[in-house]
């Protein structure tokens, strides 16, 4: 995460943070390193290395075994014989989030589950990607007016690709995954969210301007999980 982005990120109100993060500007630098920042411009060898790493991340993904609602059935179908998403190298389900790269959010998220899903997402190691499957992860879908329904996955975690449909056919999901792989291979993907434990670690770092700015701007409350459905789209 580059230093220019962070202040904006923190300034945003809680409800719209994830949504704005998705809209962020241009090609992101999710995998950027300090080395590159030190060098300034990207030397040839690093560009090639970047390309290689993007290809690697785009070609192979372990996905989290994660079922929520109706869409998870079509997700199962996408994994199984006829559709077989493993052809694209994205069909190894891992039960533990620690070993997954890709989380497909297949269904309606409700108030009780949203914090749990955030936890699961936080437990995944970087770089991680999210595919929102179905209308419910876009807006709450047919249940949008429900008192208990979170209006879209992006209220909770940043989503890279949305696959619309209720539920999307397995082909559509595979298309979504292929698109995500394409984006990752081209070096475009949404920014990383800062995790609470990373913020804590700033305390040990050599304090520089960025850290000072950050420390001033981070407000404990903004780390709270909350969802406000009055304000939702």
């Amino acid at each position: 995460m580059s230093s220019e982005r962070i202040p904006d990120d923190v300034e945003r109100t809680v409800q719209t943070k994830t949504r704005d993060a998705r809209l962020g500007s241009g090609v992101d630098d999710r995998f950027n390193s300090r080395l590159r920042q030190a060098v300034g411009s990207s030397p040839f060898i690093l560009t090639k290395f970047d390309k290689f790493m993007n290809w690697v991340r785009g070609s192979s993904m372990f996905m989290l075994q994660f079922g929520i609602a109706c869409c998870s059935l079509e997700m199962i179908h996408a994994l199984m014989i006829k559709h077989d998403v493993d052809r694209f190298g994205a069909g190894v389900p891992r039960a533990s989030p620690r070993q997954a790269d890709l989380i497909i959010v297949p269904g309606t998220i409700v108030s009780k589950f949203a914090p749990r899903m955030k936890r699961v997402y936080d437990q995944m190691p970087e770089p991680k990607f999210v595919v929102g499957m179905g209308s419910c992860t876009i807006s709450g879908g047919p249940f949008q007016e429900g008192y208990n329904v979170v209006k879209g996955a992006e209220e909770v975690i940043p989503v890279d690709i949305h696959v619309p449909g209720c539920p999307p056919r397995p082909e559509a999901l595979i298309y979504g995954i292929a698109k995500l792989q394409e984006r990752v291979a081209n070096g475009e993907s949404s920014p990383v969210v800062v995790k609470p434990y990373e913020l804590e670690q700033f305390g040990d770092l050599h304090r520089d301007e960025v850290i000072d700015q950050l420390a001033d701007r981070i407000d404990e409350d903004s780390l709270a999980m909350r969802y406000n459905w009055g304000d939702s789209p």
Partner: peptide, 27 residues
């Protein structure tokens, strides 16, 4: 519903537009 919920949603005096905030700490 979560334990922190206030009100009973299928009653006529329930205000659906009132946000129900669940602190991350609670979870």
């Amino acid at each position: 519903l979560p334990d922190t919920w206030t009100g009973h949603p299928l009653t006529d005096d329930y205000n659906q537009d009132k946000p129900q905030v669940v602190a991350y700490e609670a979870h």
